[in-house]
Amino acid sequence: MALIEINNLNFAYDEERPTLKNISLSIEAGKYVALIGHNGSGKSTLAKIIAGLFKKVEGDIKIFDLPLQKENLVKIRSQLGIVFQNPDNQFVASSVKEDIAFGLENRAIPHDEMDPIINEVAEEVGMEKFLDAAPENLSGGQKQRVAIAGTLAMKPRLLLLDEATSMLDPRGKKEILNLIRKMRKDNPELTIVSITHDVEEAALADEVIVLNDGEIVLHGTPEEVFAHRDILAQVRLDAPFFDSLVVALKAEGVAVPDDIKDIKALEDYLCR
């Protein structure tokens, strides 16, 4: 079943400059989808629409099989979690435990039911030893993991990551990518849509959707998408290191067979 079904979506903040033009896409349950595009391509707006943050948009949109309209918004929002870019702007409590509990409290989950949920999600994100820690003593990566734990506590069907790694240092970034891998293994039902301009991150996804000026220009597996280096360059995105190196090698006249698909295989091939 498609978890997200979008047909002919159009959206504009300003009538003269449409932000999203005629978007159609469908995302299957359990997939990890990377939505990439340069600053201003419309990717965050698309994520906000999927998250049910706009009351009125033009097009035929179904999220969790519910048409995107005012009376369904609460139902839609209750089944998804969002993690934003800035780790400091989404920590609402004075300790990790209370921060994770915030959403549960909002839903009036009885107190004795909360603890096991908090422990479970804290363990999932590897923050079980920091339950009493205050936000100022956590790294950016740790704060983002707490934010993810807070959304997981709500048992969402969809996790939206809106540039969740872009303000982190390399170590924090790695923590989040490892966590995404782990969540996919522990919870294959969970659908993850990650808005990013980190192509190395996008290369880990099942599908990559490339947005440019409000339109979808590429949609496919990372392998399919990153083979289009010309289009990526046009829309001002880099290819991942592996793909860039293959192109540079070919330009130097070093043949690279098509069945070489990753950096390890390339290393083996060059050293054989």
Partner: peptide
Amino acid sequence: TAGLDPAA
């Protein structure tokens, strides 16, 4: 460059 896209 933190938070900027690759081209920017």
